[in-house]
Design a binder for these strands. Sequence first.
DNA 1: TGCAAGTTTGCACTTAGTGCAAGTTGATGG
DNA 2: CCATCAACTTGCACTAAGTGCAAACTTGCA
Lengths: 204, 204
Amino acid sequence: MDTSPTPVSRRELNKAATRESIATAALDFLRNRDFNAFTVDDVAAAAGVSRRTFFNYFSSVEAAVASFTQNYLDQVIVELVARPSDEPLLESAQSALSAGGSARDLAILAETFTLTQDPQLARFQLQAWEECSLKITEVAKQRLPEGTDELYIFALVGAVVGSCKGAFQVWFQKHGTNITEESLADLRSLLASTVGLIRNGFHS
Amino acid sequence: MDTSPTPVSRRELNKAATRESIATAALDFLRNRDFNAFTVDDVAAAAGVSRRTFFNYFSSVEAAVASFTQNYLDQVIVELVARPSDEPLLESAQSALSAGGSARDLAILAETFTLTQDPQLARFQLQAWEECSLKITEVAKQRLPEGTDELYIFALVGAVVGSCKGAFQVWFQKHGTNITEESLADLRSLLASTVGLIRNGFHS
DNA sequence: TGCAAGTTTGCACTTAGTGCAAGTTGATGG
DNA sequence: CCATCAACTTGCACTAAGTGCAAACTTGCA
């Protein structure tokens, strides 16, 4: 457990570090400067990398910032596919959401709900959720019995992802980026309630 | 009914015509050329307008194309707020969705599910749905009894919008951009089923 | 008719994003 | 340890996006 089972090459480590460094630099600029008061060159310089390398990693500053949200949601998907495949889908979803991704990524995901004054950034965040939906749809198609109605699958995934996004927003309104054991417990509770509503219906 | 009740000035008519002309030109280019084989200058020229004017109306080609989706969803919202305010929300939603917006906007909305190979366009489409969610949230807050749980509202709106988006996708997979009385009836039926699932639950 | 307010346009400028070729760095086998 | 190859980084040059500004033009209104 102490030595990583997959021997990670120095190359991969470097790439990961560079990626991280760029994303962090981008986030810092977004936090501290006015929304449009900096350029890609600034971010690249702060990350200790050439402008060209920046674009080798991300197609824009917004994409770099959205990578945190991507990471978080990807982690949730990993948890989801790790669930036993005979477990009911909504239970798997709730477990995966409770397990969650890294606390740091979650904090940044929450923070980006405010940084979303910048419409271009908002669009990239939305795309992260959309890709999450696509991946979940794949999982759902494998889990649900052969020949399940397409509408059921698409509506289910859309409803789960859409309402959970809502739950994250409500959670952030209450707790801000303040991640503690209590606030995380509250998040789990909100997500559980949400999944419950999806399962049992909103009954208008 | 023959003369418009609100006297629309020539100014407004001109602006609307220009806007329409630009959006249509943008859509045509997207249909006929390869995704990145044309520029804003091309679109502006085709619309009979200067490059600068293009940017007075839309911030990008993608925004121009997404305006059709915007229009359609805005129309649905208009239908929604027109419903009696004592009607249960989910019934209002279903009626509004059945009434729908213009058939042309709907056809284009459907079509954009394929044009979505272009990620930047996809992001603008997602933003249209997101703004739709925001507006519905406003309506929901006014309709639901004072003091309704925030989570309930956000989850409900997220679930409705997310699952209906799914329904539109399923519908488009079946019918393409072919809008007939039959296909529209099928769309209404799909949306009704979807709202039913939201109301009564997915029961995993 | 003539003035005020709203719209369009051209121009100049900064920045985003990309292809390409040359330079650097890490992995690998002798 | 070195030679070699593949992967990664960088600089350069270029196209096109997007914006501020001021001049020209349209429309509304008295």
